[in-house]
Amino acid sequence: MAQSGSKTVMPVLLAISLVHMLNDSMQAVVPALYPILEESLNLSMVQIGLIGFMLNMTSSVMQPVVGAYSDKRTLPNMLPFGMGLSLIGMVGLAFAPHFWMLLCAVVFIGLGSAIFHPEGSRVVYFAAGGKRGFAQSVYQVGGNAGSTLGPLMTALVFVHLGQIGAIWGTLFAGFAIAVLLGLLPWYKRKLKEWEMEKSRRSAASANGSTVMERMSHPRVKFAMGMLVFLVFARSWYHSGIGSFYQFYLKADYGLTTSQAQIPVFLFLAAGVLGTFFGGVLADRFGLKNMIVFSIAGASPLALLLPHLPLFWVYPVIAVLGFIILSGFSVSVVYAQFLMPANVGMASGLTTGLAFGMGAIGGVALGQAIDSFGISEVMFAASFFPLVGLFALLLPSDRQK
């Protein structure tokens, strides 16, 4: 177990954050290709939603499974193995001649990500020391920075090279594998220490050494269920902006494909800053307070966004991205706080299963856009952050 008084291992933290950026950059290639694939393969919005669904379901639903398994068995070599699967997926994505081959390539990318995320979060847990919120934020900043590259890749690469431009993603995978191989000796040593500490804590568990261990089991289950639901709702809205807002900008504001990437990029880039500062502020003000602020606090801007003139879209969507993603890393730390003996599963449930459930939202939004129109659906999606008010029901993480 990570000790609150131990020192943060910054080289390891920065290295795993870099790999997180490379991993999520490969995932970002998929939605970045949507405008290109829509034209080259003549895809419908439902098919685009299905691509996002397959990516998120494979990369998300498998995360708690991998996390639960690795909580019981040490699997450090799974880190480079998962990245190898992503490399295969990137090759398939670049050369897929039709929709079904595209889905197969996306599955490989998703599985690679599913293997990486729980193990990556465990590396962060070991390297965090006493700065849990800060460490998780550094890690998530890497991932969000990778996701932010999607719109830039569309504007600078895919508009000019087309689908074949995805082959550049293999360089991301190769570099990530090299970094992970360098981290393995340290990680294996920490896993051995962790197993010994788990055995000692298991013997002393009857004494109830932490706040949540003294709480009743049903209350912990309720808190975990509510947290997954909140992340689920946030991922629906995030999917709407990340996948479909560019089509809304083209339809309602008359922007070109390249121009439509700018507001999406601002949303994601501001989210990177929000992710970092959210974790830092959570160490000071509490995990629950930041979760409430990040989801419910974004509601007014989300409701306002569909009604703004183009000039105001840029600053508002940037502030919106900062606020709503300020609770991204905090949710993972809160889940680990609820389940201190099952770090992998806790991370998988918040960054995995909840986002997999959110992937259903991508399919639903795509179907709704085909049926009712992009403007109507983006207006309806603006109400999603309101469910963040339920975060008030979460138990406090601060010891009374």
Rank of each mutant, 00 (worst) to 15 (best):
S199G: 11
V220S: 02
N342E: 13
V292T: 05
F383N: 14
C104T: 07
K7V: 13
S6D: 15
V377N: 06
S243V: 07
S331G: 12
M215K: 12
G274F: 09
A251W: 02
I88D: 01
L18T: 11
H20W: 05
V333H: 00
F222T: 05
A341W: 07
A298P: 12
R132H: 10
M215L: 09
V211F: 10
L14Q: 00
I317Y: 01
E195A: 14
D252T: 12
M54K: 00
G162T: 08
A270P: 05
L273M: 10
A114I: 05
V124G: 06
R189W: 08
L75T: 15
S209A: 11
I115W: 09
I109S: 01
F384K: 02
L149S: 05
L353Y: 13
F285D: 04
L93C: 02
G165M: 00
A114S: 11
N207G: 00
Y237L: 08
M45N: 13
P31D: 05
N77E: 12
L152Y: 05
F53K: 00
V333S: 12
S347A: 13
F95W: 09
R122H: 15
A32V: 01
L394I: 09
T170L: 00
I16W: 00
Q136H: 14
G225P: 09
I295Q: 05
N42L: 11
G67F: 11
M215H: 13
F244V: 01
S25M: 09
M224L: 15
F99W: 10
F390K: 01
P385H: 10
F108V: 01
G358R: 14
E213H: 01
G133W: 06
G150N: 10
M378A: 02
A28W: 13
E376A: 14
L268G: 04
I16V: 15
G271A: 03
P218F: 01
F267V: 05
L301S: 13
A206M: 04
L161W: 14
A96E: 02
G356T: 11
V220P: 01
S209Q: 05
G143S: 11
F232H: 11
T275R: 04
L353N: 04
M45G: 06
A368L: 14
S40M: 03
L230M: 03
I324E: 13
L37R: 07
G348F: 05
V387K: 04
M45I: 08
D370M: 07
W236D: 07
L43H: 06
Q399C: 03
I88A: 06
I323F: 03
V159S: 13
